[in-house]
Write a protein that binds this DNA or RNA. Structure first.
Lengths: 228, 228
DNA sequence: GTCTATACACAGATAGAC
DNA sequence: GTCTATCTGTGTATAGAC
């Protein structure tokens, strides 16, 4: 499955994140009309991503957010109680949507080799589609507060354990060679992250997300597959 | 060469960075006594690393730096004209020392396979020794100003090109298989960076820097070496 | 539901005593 | 060479008009 097929199949949408945030935070959001609220939340989230991506977390202040969204300071505070709450909303909701898609993918295949490939591709494709969210999470979430950093680490461990389990399962079936599966899984994660952390490089090299995924899978299989 | 041998052979020292910064910035540093200045610069740099590592760039303010160093606000400003200048000093000097060591290593071996291994190991070992600097550079330097981010990107390209060249050279000599060398080099960089970006993970997994380097090299060779 | 105006805290930076 | 005290700008957050 390539990137285009993937996005179509899972019907991914940034707007869905904004809608779910609205539904899950009705008490703290003072704006009650769904359409208005979801529209503005989407505007706010995109502005947060744009600002942090370009200038980093320090540049994300309320006046900048007001400028970038075209909304006033007063209006912004109708959507969150304080800055930290805003960041937690973005953080938490993205994680839900992403892990949901991810869990679905894991279930499809039985064969460890196919499963490994599908999981690796899914992660790269998700990070491509929700790139601002992934980038924000990796670069900035750790600075919000200790519990957000803990969430980042546990997400890393969750996805890494899925890879480790597939590798162990494949070793038992004599498909994979018995190399340190945890360390291998960790390396796979490093390469996956490369895609969303350094888009500037791949834009320059003119490498597509599908080419990148192919290359990563080729490297992993060269190392893991039992040689025939 | 393992990590211990490496550090001994190249006589790496954090104090050297502080000393070179002092010598290269005599005009802007108001403190003239070398020993005092170098001592305090080292104290300041370590405090910057500690603060940004724990709380990120936003938490790095002059009052926190004052607290962490035990120096007063007034004293701090005897060592740099403004905050941006302080960060540029840290940034620029580390890059000099590191690229010097790196360039030395490249020259030692002729055989592409040995050269690749030596370069990969050197990068990991350097990032282990100067970890706070590497981490700071990757995570925060991009936020100082556009030219510092440009410097980060050009450093990435410089080290990646060294890897690409070795891979191309090895392919010509029929040692390596002719896979996309730029993309492979890029993946190697991603895995190298993993080591200093996620120390928390490897501390937990109880993986040493030498084990990590061994595993990375095994993966790269499995993919690149011509099968016999 | 959105705006303007503003309170209040904290940041970077400097002056001038010691 | 280092300190304390302080200026000035900017940040978060709120009050209250529309």
């Amino acid at each position: 499955m390539n990137y285009l097929e993937f996005t179509k199949h899972y019907g991914l949408s940034n707007r869905d994140i904004a809608r779910e945030v609205f539904l899950n935070n009705r008490e703290s959001i003072r704006v009650k009309k769904e359409k208005t609220a979801v529209n503005n939340l989407e505007k706010i989230f995109n502005a947060v991503f744009r600002i942090t991506y370009k200038k980093g977390f320090q540049a994300l202040n309320m006046r900048a957010l007001s400028r970038e969204t075209g909304m006033s300071l007063g209006s912004l505070y109708a959507y969150f109680t304080d800055k930290e709450k805003l960041l937690e909303m973005i953080q938490g909701q993205g994680w839900l949507i992403i892990s949901k898609t991810f869990a679905e993918v894991v279930e499809i295949h039985e064969d460890p080799r196919k499963k490994l490939e599908a999981v690796v591709r899914a992660h790269i494709f998700l990070s491509e589609f929700f790139r601002p969210w992934f980038y924000f999470t990796f670069m900035e979430a750790r600075h919000i507060n200790p519990s957000e950093f803990a969430a980042v680490k546990s997400m890393e461990e969750y996805t890494q354990n899925i890879l480790t389990d597939i590798l162990i399962q494949g070793t038992k079936q004599n498909i994979f060679t018995p190399e340190n599966p945890e360390l291998t899984a960790s390396m796979i994660k490093a390469m996956q992250q490369e895609w969303y952390l350094k888009r500037w490089k791949y834009r320059k090299l003119n490498v597509s997300v599908d080419q990148f995924a192919d290359h990563l899978i080729a490297m992993v299989e060269a190392f893991c597959l039992v040689k025939v």
